[in-house]
Design a protein around this nucleic acid. Structure first.
Lengths: 255, 255
DNA sequence: TACAAACCTGCAAAAAACTGCAAAATCAAT
DNA sequence: ATTGATTTTGCAGTTTTTTGCAGGTTTGTA
């Protein structure tokens, strides 16, 4: 970083803000070296800018305002909206009298809440929160696959669950997804959950993968299935989005 | 997962939350490796975030709030105070490592919420609301008996459910009760629910009948079991209450 | 029941922040 | 240009924050 000296107070502060916009963070030690002023001066500058609400002061430096917004309330509501978009798209795949296998997860839950009241279909799942949502629906049939409960993921797991799923010939499988990328396909971090999802995919004619775009191109330790086993990829983005083109090219129908 | 170093404290915590939102859980060991700080620092970060209510700290890592928020809405239950009394009495019957079959209903639900956190036992049920309550408990094992869902009563019913229950040798069966009287024993109004309860009683060494006193000496169309099959009768009243004496005389242990 | 991993407590070193103060710089008039 | 008021800056000493570590304890699991 270039050294700049003999700055007036105003100039220093605008320099700090410029750097902050560029890198989203500044360190006091760096600033006082580059501007050739004492740490105290830098600290006082940061303090003033923080009081003016132009940055967030932290121990050792400062962060840009964009930083705090990442996990604010508005962000969580925003992601709720994204999941609602995904939910609507997924519902478009469900036709009358279909048998639908679903996993758990917040995205699936959102879909369960958005199901149109007149829809007639049969939903099969081991996810307790999903079951909870399905029972509120007036017309669908619900089948719970039972066995031991994995309390962390709130789904039933175990041999009996897998067996029951294998007996099903479902039309569609809707899977909430923790991670997906081109090389490793769909991956997850819980062995039992992975086994469940594998069984669901095997028991369904078509598989749809629901995920917010944030989780695209990330991976976890355990593979659920290769990318080519996935028929539909559903995100909140427009199918023409640049981020999704690699998946289109790989043969997945992106919705 | 990519390594990122030289982070400010706020950045570290933000990074943790991002990863948590992405994958629903993080391991301390992973985090301290990826951010290149000591385990102590990670632990302190997680502790602070947990105190701020941004995540759930668990042994070895942390969990996202997204999942646990789902079941937080608790409707006010009819005569909740009385049901709490019944719940406490019923819990007194449960001993360590017991296998307990339970039906559904608000009284059972109240009991599920009152279970002492250190209790270790196995609970088996087909009731979705009960399952929802059981998953929140840190130590119990939970087994869901699965099959078609009866949406009115929110329990699983059908041949497969009955079969599964028959395989169990439970120590105790806790039944929420719609109606009980001296002549007809326990009665109910839903064919499928009655079949489930019959199976549960047959599969248990002891049967406890939970009911508010209001429902004593009333009856419904379908018999679940005769009075002599009931080992314990649990109401909110004192066992010496006049209303209960006929049941004592009939050989039921009134609690 | 034994073992390893995770946890907690207290401590100490390093970095950063704060406090008060005086020197230096800036500004605004003459 | 000079002077006086005001602001800004740097410094010394002290306090706080952060971090890692040593130890002893708890916890989860096989």
């Amino acid at each position: 970083m270039a050294k700049i000296n003999n700055l007036l107070k105003k100039e220093r502060q605008s320099y700090i803000l410029t750097r902050l916009n560029l890198h989203n963070k500044v360190l006091s030690a760096n600033l006082c070296e580059d501007m050739e002023v004492s740490e105290d001066t830098v600290r006082r500058d940061l303090q003033e800018l923080a009081n003016a609400g132009k940055l967030i002061k932290v121990h050792g430096g400062a962060l840009s305002l964009a930083f705090s917004e990442v996990h604010s309330r508005s962000k969580t509501i925003y992601s709720q909206g994204q999941k609602a978009i995904i939910a609507e798209k997924a519902i478009g795949l469900i036709q009358k009298n279909m048998y639908v296998l679903t996993s758990g997860g917040t995205t699936i839950l959102e879909m369960a809440r958005h199901l149109p009241p007149q829809l007639k279909a049969t939903f099969i799942t081991g996810s307790i929160p999903a079951l909870n949502a399905y029972v509120a629906h007036p017309n669908i049939n619900v089948i719970a696959v039972g066995d031991r409960l994995n309390k962390e993921s709130k789904i039933t797991v175990g041999a009996s669950t897998i067996e029951k799923i294998k007996e099903v010939n479902a039309d569609l499988c809707l899977l909430g997804t923790n991670a997906i990328d081109l090389q490793r396909g769909m991956t997850d971090n819980d062995w039992e959950v992975v086994e469940m999802k594998k069984a669901m995919i095997a028991a369904s004619a078509k598989t749809a993968c629901l995920t917010i775009a944030e989780k695209l191109n990330s991976f976890e330790a355990l593979q659920v299935c290769e990318l080519r086993r996935i028929d539909y990829l559903i995100t909140e983005l427009d199918p023409t989005d640049k981020l999704l083109q690699p998946y289109v090219k790989a043969g997945v129908t992106v919705i």
